[in-house]
Write a protein that binds this DNA or RNA. Structure first.
Length: 672
DNA sequence: CTTAGGG
DNA sequence: CCCTAAG
C-alpha cells in the first residue's frame, strides 16, 4: 500500500523510524484497517475542534456569510471564497500573514482576530484546536450569544484575555500564516447555505448550558480538511440520511453531562461497553491496539495534503507537517501499556523536535522587533497522544469515527481553563497585568507556565454522549431489538484525559505532565488522552518554552482499558485442563481449548496456557506458599508429571505423537 | 491466529 | 490477565 509506505518513510522529509512489525498477515490486516480508523479519528478530532471554534467564532461575529457552499477544496477553494467574500475583518486577520501582525493586532480587531485565528488553522492540527479551546475556553458567557443553539462558550479566559494587554499575544505561530480560513469562509458559508441541518455536533459545553442549550455544530470534515487531490477525508456520514453523500457533516452529539435527559445516549454508554466487551473479545482488543498504535497512520494523508497544497499555499503544508509530527509523536507515545496511564510517558526528544519544527515556522520577526512591552507566546500545539477507543469489531467505521469524535468532544466539552503559573505560583487574578505579574521579564518567562484545567464540571456529571440515533444504524437496530445484544454497539464512551505537557521549543522545556481526566462516571471508559504541548514563548531573543502545567484532576481515570474480569479457574476447570494437557501436551493450547473449553468463551487458549503455567508453578512450590483457591494436590501432581513429561517430549515436534495420550507415568495419570 | 514468554 | 514477538 502506498499509504503504508509513506508512513514508514515519514513525511516532510522526516524519516520515521522504522518500526519493525511482525509480518503476520493478520497484523498487517489489522493495521490497514486501522489506518482508516486512525485517520478518521484524527480528522474527526480536527473536525470537531474546528467546528467548535468555528462555531463560536462565527456566532460571535455576526456574519453575513452568504456564499455558496464551498467546494470543499481546502487550499484554494477556501481561500478564494474568502476573498470573494471580502470580509474585511476576517481578511484582515487572516490575511495578515504575519504572525506578529495578527498577534499584535490591537483592539477589538485583534481580539476578534485571535479568536478567529484560533479556529482557522485548525484542520491541520487538532491540538491547535484544542489548544485554542483551552485558550478560549469553551464556556463563557461569550457563548451565550451564539445564535442557534450553539452554546459554545468562550469564557472566562476570553475575558481574561481580553483584558490583559498581552493576551492576544499568545497566539500560536500559525495564526498569521493560516492560508485559509475555511472556517470563516467556506464552512461558515456552507453552514449558512445548508442551514445547519443534518449532522451536527452537539456539544454541550458547560453543564449549565448543556441541558438547555445543546449546541449544534455542523462539521463538515471535507470542508475542514480536504484537498480534493489525495487527501480524502473520510466522511462520516449519516448512515441513514445521506448514505449517498460521501462528504458530509458529522454529527456527533455529546450530551450534557449534568442532566441526563438531554443526553439521549446517556444510558447507552454503560451498557455499551459492556455489551461489546465480551463479544468480540479479541477483535476489540486488536482494535484497541491498533488504534493506539497507529495514529501516525494518518500521516500519509496529511502528507498528501502537503503535496496537494503546493499550489501556492505553503501554510497548509506546514500545518500538515505539524500534524504529522504530532501524530508521529503520538505514535511513539502510545506504545506503552495501556493500562498504565500512558500519557504520562515522557515525550521523546523527537516529539519536541516535531514541535519545535513547526514552531520554527512561525515568523521569527515576532521574536524581535515588536512593540516593546509586549509579550508574545505562541502556543504551539496540542496533540492527541492517545485515544482509547473501544468499539466492537462489528462496528462501522462511521461509528468508530463518531466514537473518536465523542472522545474529543468530551475533552473540549469539559471546558478547559487556562491557568497561568508564574514561578511556580498560580496567578489567580485575571485582572492583573502581565507586567504586574512580572510576566514581562525574561527570567519570569522562563518559569511561566500555563495550565489546562478541566472545567469544574468535568469530573462531576458524567459526560454523556449522545448519539444521534440517526447516525447509527446499529443503534437503531439495537433499540429495536433490545434484547438481542447486538455486538454492534457503537458508541463508546470514553474518558477524556487531557495531558498537557510543555513543549520545548528550541531550548528546554519543562516537562510536566498531568492528566485531566474527565471520566464519565457511569459511563464507561475509554480514554482519550490529549496531550497538549507546547507553549512556545517567543520573547525577544530567546525562545523560551512555556511550560504548560497541566492541572491534575482529581478525577482519576480508573483504567483505560478495563481488564477482563478475573475468573479463577475452578477445580473442575483445572481438572479439565490437566487432562487435556496430559493428552495433548503443552504447546497445543488451541487444541486444549477446543477440546476442553470449547464452550467457555471466557477462556482463551492463552488463558489456558497461562493457567497451566501457573499450575506448574504452583505445583512446584510448597503448599504453604500457594495462594488462592487450593488446587487438589493430586491435580498438581498430575500437572507436574505432565509438565515434565512434555518437556521432554517436545510435543509439538512430533506431530504424530501429539494426539496420543501420553503415557507418562500411567500410574499417576489416571486419565482415561 | 497461535505460541511462547515476560510482565 | 495483559502484551508482544514471532511463527
Amino acid at each position: 500500500m502506498v499509504l503504508k509506505k509513506r508512513i514508514e518513510y515519514g513525511f516532510g522529509g522526516y524519516r520515521l523510524p522504522v518500526i519493525p512489525r511482525g509480518p503476520r498477515s493478520v497484523r498487517r490486516r489489522g493495521a490497514q484497517k486501522v489506518e482508516d480508523s486512525q485517520i478518521c479519528a484524527f480528522e474527526l478530532l480536527a473536525a470537531v475542534a474546528g467546528k467548535l471554534l468555528q462555531e463560536s467564532e462565527s456566532s460571535a461575529s455576526s456574519n453575513a456569510a452568504e456564499g455558496k457552499v464551498s467546494s470543499g477544496i481546502y487550499s484554494d477553494g477556501i481561500k478564494q471564497e474568502q476573498l470573494e467574500e471580502g470580509e474585511a475583518l476576517r481578511s484582515e486577520c487572516i490575511d495578515q500573514g504575519s504572525f506578529v501582525e495578527s498577534a499584535i493586532a490591537s483592539g477589538l480587531a485583534a481580539q476578534k482576530c485571535n479568536l478567529k485565528s484560533t479556529s482557522r488553522e485548525f484542520p491541520h492540527s487538532i491540538y491547535d484546536k484544542i489548544l485554542e479551546g483551552t485558550l478560549i475556553n469553551f464556556r463563557s458567557d461569550f457563548s451565550k450569544k451564539v445564535g442557534h443553539d450553539l452554546k459554545l462558550g468562550v469564557p472566562d479566559n476570553k475575558k481574561a484575555v481580553e483584558k490583559s494587554p498581552c493576551k492576544v499575544e499568545a497566539v500560536s505561530p500559525n495564526y498569521g500564516e493560516s492560508c485559509d480560513d475555511y472556517i470563516d469562509g467556506g464552512i461558515e458559508r456552507q453552514l449558512d447555505a445548508e442551514g445547519n441541518h443534518n449532522r451536527n455536533v452537539d456539544l454541550t459545553v458547560d453543564n449549565t448550558y448543556s441541558s438547555k442549550y445543546p449546541m449544534e455544530i455542523c462539521v463538515d470534515i471535507h470542508q475542514l480538511i480536504n484537498s480534493d487531490t489525495s487527501v480524502q477525508l473520510p466522511s462520516y456520514r449519516d448512515s441513514v440520511a445521506n448514505a449517498s453523500f460521501p462528504r458530509h457533516r458529522n454529527n456527533v452529539k455529546v450530551g450534557s453531562r449534568d442532566d441526563g435527559k438531554n443526553s439521549i445516549g446517556c444510558n447507552r454508554p454503560s451498557s455499551k461497553i459492556r455489551a461489546f466487551r465480551p463479544q468480540p473479545r479479541i477483535g476489540h482488543q486488536r482494535m484497541r491496539k491498533l488504534l493506539t498504535s497507529k495514529y501516525w497512520k494518518l500521516a500519509p494523508k496529511l502528507k498528501d495534503c502537503e503535496f496537494s497544497n503546493n499550489d501556492g499555499c505553503m501554510k497548509p503544508i506546514s500545518r500538515c507537517r505539524k500534524a504529522l509530527y504530532t501524530s508521529e509523536r503520538i505514535q511513539r507515545e502510545v506504545p506503552f501499556k495501556k493500562r498504565k496511564l500512558c500519557y504520562h510517558s515522557s515525550t521523546p526528544a523527537h516529539d519536541l523536535e516535531g514541535s519545535s519544527e513547526s514552531i520554527s515556522n512561525s515568523p521569527k520577526k515576532g521574536v524581535y522587533g515588536d512593540k516593546i512591552g509586549s509579550v508574545k507566546f505562541s502556543i504551539k500545539s496540542f496533540k492527541v497522544p492517545e485515544l482509547y477507543v473501544e468499539v466492537p469489531v462489528t462496528a462501522t467505521v462511521g461509528s468508530l469515527k463518531r466514537t473518536v469524535m465523542d472522545a474529543v468532544t468530551a475533552i473540549l466539552e469539559s471546558g478547559l481553563h487556562v491557568g497561568v503559573i508564574v514561578q511556580g505560583k498560580k496567578v489567580k487574578d485575571d485582572n492583573k497585568t502581565l507586567q504586574q505579574t512580572g510576566i514581562c521579564h525574561t527570567d519570569v518567562l522562563d518559569t511561566l507556565g500555563f495550565t489546562l484545567e478541566p472545567g469544574s464540571a468535568i469530573a462531576l456529571p458524567s459526560l454523556s454522549l449522545k448519539d444521534p440515533p440517526i447516525l447509527l444504524p446499529c443503534e437503531t437496530r439495537q433499540q429495536l431489538s433490545s434484547s438481542a445484544a447486538s455486538p454492534i454497539l457503537d458508541s463508546g464512551v470514553f474518558n477524556a484525559s487531557f495531558e498537557a505537557s510543555p513543549v520545548t521549543n528550541m531550548n528546554h522545556s519543562v516537562e510536566s505532565k498531568h492528566e485531566l481526566v474527565s471520566s464519565p462516571t457511569e459511563v464507561l471508559t475509554d480514554g482519550t488522552a490529549v496531550d497538549s504541548r507546547a507553549l512556545v514563548a517567543l520573547p525577544a531573543v530567546h525562545v523560551e518554552a512555556l511550560a504548560v502545567v497541566p492541572v491534575n484532576q482529581k478525577t482519576r481515570r480508573p483504567e483505560l482499558v478495563q481488564r477482563r474480569t478475573r475468573r479463577p479457574f475452578s477445580v473442575s476447570e483445572v481438572e479439565a485442563l490437566v487432562e487435556a494437557v496430559e493428552k495433548l501436551g503443552t504447546g497445543r493450547w488451541r487444541d486444549v481449548k477446543l477440546r476442553s473449553f470449547e464452550d467457555a468463551d471466557h477462556r482463551t487458549y492463552v488463558d489456558l496456557k497461562d493457567k497451566w503455567k501457573t499450575l506448574v508453578h504452583t505445583a512446584s512450590i510448597s503448599p504453604q506458599q500457594r495462594r488462592g483457591a487450593p488446587v487438589p494436590q493430586d491435580l498438581l501432581d498430575r500437572v507436574l508429571s505432565a509438565h515434565t513429561y512434555w518437556s521432554h517430549h517436545q510435543s509439538k515436534l512430533h506431530g504424530k505423537h501429539q494426539s496420543e495420550p501420553l503415557t507418562i507415568s500411567e500410574a499417576q495419570v489416571g486419565t482415561a
